[in-house]
Design a protein around this nucleic acid. Structure first.
Length: 280
DNA sequence: CTGCGGTCCTGAAGGC
DNA sequence: TGCCTTCAGGACCGCA
């Protein structure tokens, strides 16, 4: 699922491609997933691509924004030439690399015959026209505002399991289930531990672990595991799935101690951990 | 404040 | 083998 590293990878790719292009038309194939008046962005020029947590914002001239959340299965695909609308790999779960696809929900065409496609198999995500970027107010875990002091402040008084806490976008922006599980393994903290009960050494270990796994996720271009739909705007796959610490590794040996990775459910979420190096 | 269950959706996985 | 049921999961909402 697209989390901070996946959205950041998309942001960086888009930034090199669509800055300066002018919107010619907007085609809405799934009205349920589009909010706002598409007419307001016709003729506007792309000025920047922003991200806060898992939210992506395409900044336009005249202070308009196309805000996007990919949720579970959203994809953003960039096609340079609509006379040949293909990407390098087949779209996951579909047998085509041609756009638009059956799961295409919105098409934004530019005046130079290039286009942006919003695909979303499960229809959880959305595209919204707004006058400001959208996103959580909490600190982005890849940003400078995510300091150890900030982390310690939000942890304080929380009686949630740390596993659940890390997913709370009102506290931290950008962590999803993959990097949540992997960060707890790196920090050697059991996912059921209460967030507010971590000692100072654990707080620091976890803080560093979050930054580490998020940076690694970005380094490998995000995670494109077999059960995920995430791809980059040019259709290429991320590679973080080759470096999972515990996520989806239940039944396999721990990379640190060889113990079998377990899967439990916490807060309704699949939770993966090593019972030997993440003690309760 | 926290937790819990339901909602959206659809392919995959599990059960028999 | 094959049909049928259940599950996963980000954000949000109502209720306890």
């Amino acid at each position: 699922m697209p989390e901070l590293p996946e959205v950041e990878t998309i942001r960086r790719k888009l930034k090199t491609e669509i800055i300066g292009r002018t919107i010619k038309s907007v085609e809405i194939l799934e009205p349920k997933q589009f909010f706002g008046d598409p007419q307001t962005i016709i003729g506007k020029k792309v000025t920047d691509i922003l991200r806060k947590g898992k939210y992506l914002s395409i900044a336009l001239s005249d202070n308009l924004f196309i805000n996007i959340h990919l949720k579970m299965s959203g994809q953003i695909i960039w096609v340079e030439d609509m006379n040949n609308p293909v990407i390098k790999n087949p779209i996951p779960r579909l047998q085509t690399n041609r756009l638009p696809a059956s799961i295409t929900r919105v098409i934004i065409k530019f005046t130079d015959n290039s286009a942006l496609f919003y695909n979303d198999m499960r229809k959880f995500g959305w595209v919204k026209i707004g006058d400001a970027p959208e996103g959580p107010k909490s600190a982005d875990v890849a940003g400078e505002e995510f300091t150890l002091e900030y982390f310690q402040k939000v942890l304080k008084n929380s009686r949630k399991p740390i596993k659940t806490f890390l997913l709370d976008q009102d506290k931290l922006a950008g962590v999803g289930n993959i990097y949540d599980n992997d960060a707890l393994w790196v920090a050697q903290i059991h996912p059921s531990r209460l967030a507010g009960a971590l000692n100072e050494a654990e707080q620091k270990q976890l803080y560093e672990a979050i930054k580490e796994v998020i940076a690694e996720g970005i380094k490998y271009g995000g995670s494109s595991a077999r059960d995920e739909n995430y791809i980059m705007p040019d259709g290429s796959l991320g590679e973080y799935q080759k470096h999972f610490k515990v996520y989806h590794r239940h039944g396999q040996p721990c990379h640190r101690c060889g113990e079998e990775i377990k899967r439990i459910t916490i807060g309704g979420r699949g939770t993966f951990y090593c019972p030997k190096c993440q003690l309760l």
